[in-house]
């Protein structure tokens, strides 16, 4: 799959932003006044920034409101509905804390639930696609949720929880990579099933329909990052988990240290998301004798 920058930025930023909102929502002693303002500003900026970025790859962003209509069938539509609900509820909760120093606990819990539900709907946009076996697993949701919760804990200053959750996320990431590497072959789709000619012998592509790459090949057959997969996986893991852990363990927890750990974590998640798209093989590639 073509790793569109807008989608990588979107899933990375709004994932961690929604994770942070969830932690703020369940905080028994939430910040109030200016402290609350800065905390919520950061979480909202990440989430909303990500959501806005996601509209950049649309052919017609001016019609984006229509995407709220099909929540009964479409995970993308559900994501839109959930994200607005989460932001609205958390907005009210934040207003209570910032202006009245009054935590309205039920709102916080509902908002936290909606925030995580939004991350889940995002993951399901990818996990629902049978055409991309690497994504088509519940593990994709586990990966997205664990990263959002771990990153959110880090940003919310819950360093103890963050350290444990980073390890959980690392485990989810490793298992997802391992399962993903054999997912396409396990599904059993090849040129034989794609053309229906497999029982007659070996099928190979002789000629593409056109002499130069088309939309389908640009969108679905992406090879550049795959060349360096193992190196990129190690870089992602180091930035996403190892370095933040080292920083949190070695240095005293203050705002600067947490920001440093979070920046490293974000860069790691972005690298992992780049691989998430670039490594994904779509069944269309079969028709072109490629992956």
């Amino acid at each position: 799959m073509h790793p569109a920058a807008s989608v990588i930025i979107f899933t990375t930023l709004s994932g961690i932003g929604l994770g942070m909102l969830a932690w703020l929502g369940i905080d028994p002693t939430p910040p109030t006044g200016w402290a609350a303002f800065w905390n919520f500003l950061l979480a909202f900026a990440l989430t909303v920034g990500g959501l806005i970025s996601s509209t950049f790859h649309l052919g017609h962003p001016e019609r984006a409101l229509k995407a709220f209509t099909q929540w009964r069938t479409s995970w993308l539509s559900r994501e839109g509905v959930c994200s607005v609900a989460a932001l609205s509820v958390m907005g009210l909760y934040a207003a209570g804390l910032v202006f009245f120093a009054k935590p309205i606990a039920p709102l916080g819990y509902i908002g936290a639930g909606l925030s995580l539900l939004t991350v889940y709907t995002t993951s399901m946009i990818y996990a629902q696609l049978a055409t991309i076996p690497r994504w088509n697993t519940p593990l994709t949701s586990v990966l997205y949720l664990s990263l959002a919760i771990a990153g959110g804990a880090l940003l919310a200053g819950r360093t103890g929880a963050a350290m444990a959750l980073l390890l959980v996320a690392a485990g989810a990431q490793l298992i997802w990579w391992m399962k993903g590497d054999t997912a396409f072959a396990d599904r059993g789709s090849d040129l034989g099933t794609a053309t229906g000619l497999g029982d007659r012998g070996e099928v190979r592509s002789l000629a593409h329909p056109h002499t130069s790459p088309n939309y389908l090949m640009r969108e679905f057959v992406y090879v550049v990052a795959r060349k360096h997969v193992q190196k990129l996986r190690i870089i992602a893991m180091l930035l996403m988990v190892a370095l933040p852990l080292l920083i949190l363990v070695a240095l005293p927890a203050n705002l600067f240290v947490i920001a440093l750990a979070a920046a490293s974590h974000l860069a790691g998640v972005a690298t992992s998301r780049w691989l998430f798209f670039a490594e994904a093989e779509h069944t269309v590639g079969i028709y072109y004798g490629m992956r």
Partner: peptide
């Protein structure tokens, strides 16, 4: 009504949809 998100092309196994 199409916003050009491309998700339907992702969901099609056959490459039958192309975003203009």
């Amino acid at each position: 009504s199409c916003i050009g998100c491309g998700l339907c092309a992702w969901a099609c196994p056959y490459g039958a949809r192309e975003l203009d």
